[in-house]
Write a protein that binds this DNA or RNA. Sequence first.
DNA 1: GCCAACGTTGGC
DNA 2: GCCAACGTTGGC
Length: 156
Amino acid sequence: MAKRYWLMKTEPDVFSIRDLKARPGKTEAWNGVRNYTARNHMRDLMSVGDGVLFYHSSVTPAGVAGLAVVAKKAYPDPTAMDPKSEYFDAKAKPGINPWVMVDVKFQQEFPALVTLDQMKQTPGLEGIMVTRKGMRLSVQPVTAEEFAIVAKLGGG
DNA sequence: GCCAACGTTGGC
DNA sequence: GCCAACGTTGGC
């Protein structure tokens, strides 16, 4: 399958690019996605080697903090079946757990955040989803061109 | 199956 | 903290 590119959002207070870098193998399971569109992107379209723009949300400024890569294709997210988890979903049962996660591996942290505002002003990024008002999808597809432009802005 | 109410996201 | 946008829920 052809390599694809993604933007994945996280609140850095919860999990940041530095947390990813500090993980064993610099790899983390991307659990807690509870939106069907985002789930479908992970389950149906993501493959090992896909590029990831690692986006920090709910901070000022928000923006892409670095690059990562998909290290394992989608598999069941156990936090959905853990009553003690904040991501628990009563609909999830063994065998019918609707939620999946992928593993994501650290590639690089940008020297400076590529901010939302910067992306809005950059030619070639007119269509990137994250700049659209009200766009809150946590796993978004980006084009190879958009990925390359953001990587370059980040100094990657 | 429609759609209003509700809850959440996330930039500002 | 505000509130627009949007996804989900649930009554009908």
